[in-house]
Design a protein around this nucleic acid. Structure first.
Lengths: 195, 195
DNA sequence: TGTACATCAGTGAACGCGCGTTCACTGATGTAC
DNA sequence: TGTACATCAGTGAACGCGCGTTCACTGATGTAC
């Protein structure tokens, strides 16, 4: 076994976190075993507990990391109405629906997360508020606090819409739901901006 | 063992379906084992396969049954705007959020269902369209077909909002998200009615 | 420069447990005589 | 009315398997001398 410098273990840990995040979004939390998660990262099961206290610890860490990635994705759109519109279109696209492993962790895992222990839900809450406050600040620089709930509620709308579109087997209907979701998200946004 | 008439086995099957529906909504699908599901119904694990082909078969059946129950609940509200408003308030209430086992199967299970096999997703799709078309017919008797996507998208909005409220550990924020969700749902409804 | 050693990331077998599923069996029943 | 029997819903032990977790061990490393 090659021995690397001090940054090596951190890099391994990061690799586990990232591949696990994708696996969780694809197969669910309960659907992803520790041995599989480690194999994804090119390791064996035994090394897991050198990096994490427990599977629950990895779940909290991986979900936070996924949300950090989503935050970067969200802030890659230009500020203002046009950017938000582009973001909503990309979020509620057939491509996002059909590739959950590359997509939003909330859409893939929210109801499993709601059944997790409090520390995991706390990690989710902190990370998602990081995203939401970021967007709120860009959307409403003078009153980000009141925009927080608006942005959260639009996020919830998009999450539910993507989940429903993923579960309906009627493809045409699933597409229609995405398109209607886009209209609804923008209508809610405009209603909030007007007030 | 007491032997009953022909209706007895059907009654047992129905009891399994109903207790399993509640258990799934509380602990998730992967989080509910067959032995536990049978114990909930006052039986032992061995009897399961006299009633269902597989766990997946029960999942599809129980989810359909839960949605049938939700359909009855939804149609218990008076038709028209006032009834819809009352329904939205009840759906997006702290009581519903805090008692998933009594509540909406979509809010509890939608992302787990999105990872199920096609027959299960088909059962979900059929049942949810039963609800949606019912509501659409009451909301827009002259054009229920075009109301279908509108109602589905409002359903998705409510599902996502309830899930998010269940996962945020900040209680005040979770309550605020529910209230904003109510406003959003009604705004989307009014926008659809106006056009 | 060469050798002995402490370090420590990762290995892989094993732990007890619960999973979904199968099956030989039980025992109260309604029916046949 | 009384007895023998076929039915069949439900029992409970067992199957192989994967789960999360533990641990004695490996072996390449940088360091000490």
């Amino acid at each position: 076994m090659v021995r690397y410098g001090k940054e090596h273990k951190q890099a391994t840990r990061q690799r586990i976190i990232e591949t696990a995040g994708r696996r969780f979004k694809r197969d669910g939390i309960d659907g992803s075993g520790v041995a599989t998660l480690m194999k994804d990262a090119g390791l064996t099961n035994g090394a897991f507990y050198a990096h994490f206290e427990s599977k629950e610890d990895l779940v909290a860490t991986a979900v936070s990391e996924q949300l950090r990635g989503q935050r970067e994705w969200l802030t890659s759109f230009e500020p203002g109405r046009a950017g938000i519109e582009a973001m909503v279109h990309t979020y509620l696209s057939p491509e996002h629906r059909d590739n959950p492993e590359d997509g939003c962790p909330s859409a893939a895992l929210l109801d499993e997360l709601s059944r997790c222990a409090d520390p995991t839900k706390q990690a989710y809450t902190d990370s998602v508020l990081g995203i939401i406050d970021d967007i709120a600040a860009r959307l409403s620089p003078h009153d980000p606090q009141s925009a927080r709930v608006t942005v959260l509620s639009i996020y919830a709308l998009m999450v539910g819409t993507l989940q429903l579109s993923r579960t309906l087997v009627d493809r045409q209907l699933a597409d229609d739901v995405l398109e209607q979701g886009i209209r609804n998200a923008l209508a809610v946004l405009d209603a909030a901006s007007a007030s």
